[in-house]
């Protein structure tokens, strides 16, 4: 099982004001809020953590059949080389992120060694393929200009 999540950073900037009062507290743990507060680029850290949570949630949701909105129960740890780990209820998901100036894309897998074998396709508008479902991606993520598929 794989998960993936893409954040269009230009859209995120206008769509979400994470500096809004209480916003961070609703979705990030104390440790994660410290990472954001001490980051050189807090915007990047917010969306990196968010894409890690979303990509891990996509696997966890399929695995457990539970659909909820509980971002704070997904605990992120960020390692070097854009690698990370997301823990929820004794389940661990491993993540690898691709941080660009216009987007952040994260892939998640339940086994660390699987990450290296994941194939990623990222399309920018207007070049989204209409028939991508036929290619049977393991996980699909849309945001703003971007469509991200993993296999």
């Amino acid at each position: 099982m794989l998960g993936n999540d893409i954040v269009d950073l230009n859209l995120a900037k206008i769509q979400s004001n994470w500096r809004r009062k209480n916003y961070l507290d609703k979705i990030f743990t104390t440790e994660e809020q410290l990472l954001i507060a001490s980051a050189n680029d807090p915007d990047e850290m917010v969306w990196l953590l968010w894409s890690m949570k979303e990509s891990a949630y996509k696997i966890h949701n399929r695995k457990t059949g539970i659909r909820d909105f509980s971002p704070k129960s997904l605990n992120c740890a960020v390692y070097k080389d854009s690698l990370g780990e997301v823990n929820i209820n004794n389940c661990t998901y491993f993540t690898k992120s691709n941080i660009q100036t216009t987007f952040i894309h994260t892939i998640a897998a339940p086994v660390f060694d699987k990450l290296a074998a994941v194939k990623v396709a990222i399309y920018e508008l207007p070049d989204h393929p209409d028939d991508y479902k036929r290619t049977q991606p393991a996980s699909v993520s849309h945001h703003g200009q971007y469509l991200a598929l993993v296999y």
């Binding site: 995120a12 769509q15 979400s16 809004r20 209480n22 979705i27 968010w50 909105f69 971002p71 945001h143």
Partner: peptide, 14 residues
């Protein structure tokens, strides 16, 4: 609705 905006809905409700 974008999942990051669900937080805004919760805050607006509060």
């Amino acid at each position: 609705i974008n999942s990051a905006n669900l937080v805004d809905i919760v805050l607006d409700v509060e």
